[in-house]
Design a protein around this nucleic acid. Sequence first.
DNA 1: TTACATGCAAAGGGTTTGCATAACT
DNA 2: AGTTATGCAAACCCTTTGCATGTAA
Lengths: 152, 152
Amino acid sequence: MDTSLKSTLHRRGLRMTPQRQLVLDAVRELGHATPEQICTQVQRAAPAVNITTVYRTLDLLEELRLVRHTHLGHGAPTYSERAHEHVHLVCHHCGAVSEAPTALMDELADRLREREDFELDVTHVALSGRCATCREADLKASQELGEKEARA
Amino acid sequence: MDTSLKSTLHRRGLRMTPQRQLVLDAVRELGHATPEQICTQVQRAAPAVNITTVYRTLDLLEELRLVRHTHLGHGAPTYSERAHEHVHLVCHHCGAVSEAPTALMDELADRLREREDFELDVTHVALSGRCATCREADLKASQELGEKEARA
DNA sequence: TTACATGCAAAGGGTTTGCATAACT
DNA sequence: AGTTATGCAAACCCTTTGCATGTAA
């Protein structure tokens, strides 16, 4: 079975277009990007492409399971290739997004299945917390505060 | 130390108002609710209250650590009492939201701290997946499909 | 009499929809 | 010809901001 985008579309009576290829390319190049970022990237090659088309194409590519979107918290979701599976870690202090292997979630997924009868989708929602850099900064700040109080 | 809302506000040079009490009451009554739902609830007691005030009050109550908000995926976040700590499980098929004990996440939190140097905030983001009801429906549907194919 | 709080209207980001046009098959 | 795809504008939801008015210390 031919699994190229073109034939996948054709099997559904849909057509391959330059726009669709460009959106898919942009998702692949950008890693995890918002619709707006994807649109900007696409427009570098084809300035006339409208953001509406980007939204429609992302929905389509998601249906075709070529991409997925993740909610990082506030604001627009980000889209990435389906093949690149990972957990997103978002620092809600500085906003930094990092990626971790999904294997980290295996045990949680098992427990949720057993105890809550819930089948976890590891990639759809990001985990929120405080990143290494901000934790270091916190530590330093509290040390300085300690010294200041010791002096006083 | 007096920890009532009124004195907490007073210590910051802020005032207690009927609106602020009503918003806090609504959050407590509704469990996890969007700003709009909270506004509707508040307006049952005081119809003139504006949604702007609800947003401002929710921000304030969050700063005071009396409430927290959680992103369930699409759409508006939901607010709940800070004291009610739990993990949110959202079914991305039917939209149902359930709650699970945060203890489920303890091991994941430990691993993230060790391996990724990331301090997880368990409550801020919901976990996404497929709930028990939808999983049963899936199972039933695939069984029926199997029977149909067997007949054909 | 000064600071804080509210309501209202308007603007802002992100997304969807309606519709006419254009491009395929 | 008939369907699918696009661009454009308008509408939509959710949230924030500016400003005038109101209210409490």
